[in-house]
């Protein structure tokens, strides 16, 4: 039995991952901001076989609550073992171009709040000399594109932060996993026209759980995105800036 803390537990990808853990009989602690969604999510995981599911409602933009909710999770789980950070928002790039206020809000949710959580988590896990932190970043963070560069900046910064943290925690045996999904068919992408590049949340969740089981460093999900992003990153800037991406 694993003890799994999921932050942003009502995300479609997180729920699919949580079901895999629940099916194995793991003990879960879920954090999300919407009490009603959290309640049905927790109940689903209980039915799917989780050893125990506890929850707390928190808006993760509220940094001041982070330490307290980690205390709560640690208490309910009986220790921290696996932590999955899965929340996020996909902003309307056009809207942000006209408003720094909105841009700052996005960076707070998708980057700074994650840094706040990781700072607290890293110290706890480093002290206990074990544990796994997996964070859902995105392929969007691999290169700035004009259509989505604020989200890309936040995710790119998260990936960079995780890279450094991985090195720092390596000696203490704590694993840090960067998860970079491509397009996933979830409520976040409801407005986007679907094409063959879209993966199901279940497929991505499988990849996440297997990365956690095997202690990988960086995973692209589905894996073909590694190759795609290799090419995207290789395009010279003078050409890239002209592309409609």
């Amino acid at each position: 039995m694993k003890r799994v803390l999921i932050i942003g537990a009502t995300s479609a990808i997180a729920r699919a991952a949580a079901r895999i853990f629940a099916g194995r009989g793991d003990r879960l602690f879920l954090v999300a901001r919407d009490a009603a969604k959290l309640q049905v999510t927790a109940q689903d995981l209980r039915v799917h076989g989780a050893e125990r599911v506890d929850v707390t409602v928190a808006d993760l933009d509220d940094f001041a609550r982070h330490e307290a909710l980690l205390d709560e999770a640690e208490g309910a789980l009986g220790g921290l073992e696996v932590v999955l950070i899965a929340y996020g928002t996909l902003p309307d790039q056009k809207l942000l171009e006209g408003s720094f206020e909105e841009t700052e809000k996005e960076l707070r949710t998708n980057f700074l709040s994650v840094v706040s959580l990781l700072t607290a988590l890293a110290n706890r896990l480093e002290a206990q000399k074990q544990g796994t932190i997996a964070v859902i970043s995105s392929v969007a963070g691999d290169r700035g594109r004009k259509s989505n560069y604020v989200y890309g900046t936040a995710k790119g910064a998260v990936s960079l932060f995780l890279q450094g943290l991985r090195g720092r925690l390596h000696p203490s045996g704590v694993r840090v996993i960067t998860i970079k999904p491509g397009f996933v068919d979830t409520p976040m992408t409801a407005e986007i026209k679907k094409n063959a590049l879209f993966a199901s949340p279940e497929a991505v969740a499988k990849g996440i759980v297997s990365a956690i089981d095997r202690g990988r460093d960086v995973v692209y999900l589905p894996p073909f995105w590694r190759g795609v992003m290799l090419i995207v990153r290789a395009v010279p800037e003078p050409l890239f800036k002209r592309l409609n991406l």
Binding site: A12, V40, T41, Q43, D44, V47, H48, P187
Partner: peptide, 19 residues
């Protein structure tokens, strides 16, 4: 199709309640 959570299952009677 996104409303796909299980709500209750009784392993003794096989009664399942699901979205």
């Amino acid at each position: 199709t996104g409303s796909e959570r299980l709500i209750a299952f009784d392993p003794a009677s096989g009664v399942v309640r699901a979205e």
